[in-house]
Amino acid sequence: MTMKEHSHYYVPESSWYPAWAALGIATMVYGLAVWLNDSKSGSENPTVFLFFTGFALLSAVLFAWYGKVIEENHQGLANAQLKQSYVWGMAWFIFSEIMFFAAFFGALLYSRNFVMAWLGGEGGKALTGDYLWPAFQAVWPIVENPDPLVFPNPGESMAPPPLSQWGSYLPFWNTVILLTSSVTVHMAHTALKNGFRDKLKLWLSITVILGVIFIFLQIEEYVHAYQELGLTLGTGIYGSTFFLLTGFHGFHVTLGTFILFVQLIRSFKGHFNREDQFGFEAASWYWHFVDVVWVFLFFFVYLY
């Protein structure tokens, strides 16, 4: 415990943010549930008002909260130990995110390696396929579902073309973009640590732009999947795992880009210095995490 003499661990006396954030979250998810149920029952005008109210409330509170933390830091309230708490907090938060993705990777690997084989009449429970699904073939990506009447077949999958044609293979470029952005965010970090503020802004801007490009390409890819390949959420387990894995990843990229964008604004405002930059560092950790997830995605979802 390396505590400086007389530096107190700052404990805010009281705070209105969390309670309001809780109300925001609750309103938001309750509203989302109402919205989804309305849509499911075929309502023309689902109730969306609650969801957006909650979302707005939550965003506003988080904005104020985050601002307050920055302000306290500038007032010198955050001592080294408190900063260390933020470090632990962020690190273990990312760990929990990894476990969230692990659930979906697990689902992909399980359905691909076990379920598909069984339904296709192979492996430990081959009888399932032979007796119940005689027509089903165990080939990944699945383009012929066990029961196409219930889950229509996708036209095509996202499987990669031969290497020579990777030049026009979007996921490949997405990989390149994300990997590059990991480097650029690292450059920004190094620049910050060495006190090169201009380089910091430059590299960080590039990172944000790369993030935005990634998101655009990803949207492009979804449009392609839905409109040209006939691959949708409803076309069986291949589509289910594909869209949920890439979708949650895309969602995290969006969030990460936004967070980096906030850091960019802060660096233009002159925040951070050579010693004190955890806000930035946390954002870059998050970005690296999103990046590593993509590498796994690219391998398991597209290539493998």
Partner: peptide
């Protein structure tokens, strides 16, 4: 339930 995926439905290759 809401978006037609088939994680838990063998008819779509889930289980």
């Amino acid at each position: 339930i809401h978006f037609g995926t088939s994680f838990f439905n063998a008819a779509g290759g889930g289980d």
